[in-house]
Write a protein that binds this DNA or RNA. Structure first.
Length: 125
DNA sequence: TTGTTGACCTCTT
DNA sequence: CAAGAGGCCAACA
């Protein structure tokens, strides 16, 4: 499918949504329950591309445009680090949102990460 | 159109 | 055990 121009519109215009890798990522992220987190790799694997974790990162970068809003703060890297915190409105936004949901964060690192980890490959059959 | 660059992960020296 | 490279898909110059 030709999608160069179309996809560009889809990204820049939230109302012009298209089924793309990005959209799939958004869908998964929206399924993350409150107070739980998942990883880029888990999402990538769930979408059928275990090695496409970087793309998930890219998707999150554009998640600001997505409607309905995507809880991007619930996605961290494999170690439970808040690697994307600098891409929020304010650097402490991500940590604040997580803490608000009852997830302890210290030095950009989620404490007891495995306790809060939510794997779409298991939860979403 | 080609090359570089990502909010990353995994396998290989 | 540490370090490097490859891989994925899309954006941008």
């Amino acid at each position: 499918m030709k999608r160069t121009k179309k996809l560009k519109n889809a990204i820049s215009d939230p109302l012009f949504r298209d089924i793309s890798f990005f959209e799939q990522v958004y869908e998964v992220v929206r399924q993350i329950p409150e107070g739980r987190v998942t990883t880029y790799g888990a999402i990538a694997r769930f979408l059928g591309s275990p090695l496409a974790a970087r793309m998930v990162g890219w998707a999150m970068n554009n998640s600001h445009f997505a409607l309905p809003p995507v809880p991007a703060h619930r996605v961290v890297n494999r170690n439970g680090q808040l690697t994307g915190k600098m891409h929020f409105k304010t650097p402490d936004e991500m940590e604040r949102l997580l803490a608000q949901e009852g997830i302890p964060v210290k030095n950009d690192q989620i404490q007891n990460f495995l306790t809060y980890f939510w794997d779409p490959n298991i939860e979403l059959v």
